[in-house]
């Protein structure tokens, strides 16, 4: 797979080029091994993006996961464990979505 699929920061350039193997590849580059707990977040993110055309920043991601997957998972600590220090950025990247605005 060619590197030109990705931009400088490792985000997929063409959103339609995403597939589960591509997600695995992006995750490996982030030293993350995808487990079911990752995939359910990725699925929620991709459904949200399909509806709202927006990659959520951390605050909105936490609330989105809380709404879709419950209180236990809708916490920034939980998401930081899954997706390292900047969950909104890393989870969007693995889900094949654009980088969220206002990443802090």
């Amino acid at each position: 797979m060619s590197d030109s699929l990705f931009d400088k920061e490792g985000f997929l350039r063409d959103l339609s080029a995403w597939s589960e193997p591509v997600a695995e590849q992006i995750a490996r580059a982030e030293n993350i091994s995808l487990a079911p707990s990752h995939w359910e977040v990725i699925r929620v993110l991709r459904e949200f993006y399909a509806e709202h055309q927006h990659s959520p920043a951390t605050r909105a991601l936490v609330n989105l996961i809380k709404r879709e997957l419950g209180e236990d998972k809708g916490r920034s600590v939980y998401l930081m464990k899954l997706f390292s220090g900047t969950p909104a950025k890393t989870a969007s990247k693995i889900a094949g979505l654009p980088k969220p605005d206002n990443c802090i």
């Binding site: 709202h52 055309q53 927006h54 959520p56 605050r59 989105l64």
Partner: peptide, 15 residues
């Protein structure tokens, strides 16, 4: 263009 109403719907998720 992006559908603005879809983005407006995210306001509650941002608190």
């Amino acid at each position: 263009q992006k559908t603005l109403s879809k983005l407006l719907e995210t306001l509650p998720l941002y608190g």
